[in-house]
Amino acid sequence: MVPNDIKTKTKTKTKTYDITIDRGGSEPMTFTLELAPELTVLDALEEIRYSLDDTLLYRHSCHHGSCGTCACIINGTEALACMSVLSSLPGQEITIRPLEGFPVIGDLLVDLSEMVRLMPEGPCLRDSTLKKESLPPEGVDRWVRFENCIECGSCMSACPVTGPFIGPAPLAALHRAIEQTEDPQELERLRSRAYAPDGVDGCDAQFACSRVCPVKVAPGRHITQLKRERTS
């Protein structure tokens, strides 16, 4: 084992990237960096934070598309910075903006708390989608997995609706909760939330939410189903 950093040096050729952080309100700032193309936009932000601008505000945690913290608008489209590989983007000029529709605390840092407040409590887990003949072992109630939605806010940002509307992420979560609940009172509560004036009727069916969702929750499909199930 090599007990130092030597092992981490790669032979990959770097390219010159111009990364523009468009903070909105203030002048956009462009940083020029030499980066290996297999790195991600999040890696670029980390390089900027540690070598060029130690005040840069951005969110990140898991670095593999599971936590949902690093969503921002990259070259005009909502995406997770950690899953946006530089070589997959056209050209070497990249513009990054904070998500739309959320209060911007600074740079790329937005406050998602209003969206989270609109999400119904649970369910965070659901049945596994793996097809298996075997029941789980003793001590495991059922084969489970986390919900797909990582609450990243991309769908909320991309949604073109400007009127009163709670937005795609809470509606998709409401629909999942409606499908899973077995409590009639809870069902009634969830349905009245989904069909409130700022609920499904606010949706223009433009499906921007489904297009940008990084984990394929397809909120637009959930909303369409909610509309169909209104009278059931």
Binding site: V2, P3, D5, K7, T8, K9, T10, E46, E47, Y50
Partner: peptide, 14 residues
């Protein structure tokens, strides 16, 4: 697992 002197920026070894 390897050892690094800088925990800020960690690159995946070849």
């Amino acid at each position: 697992q390897w050892l690094s002197s800088d925990p800020d920026i960690v690159r995946i070894p070849e």
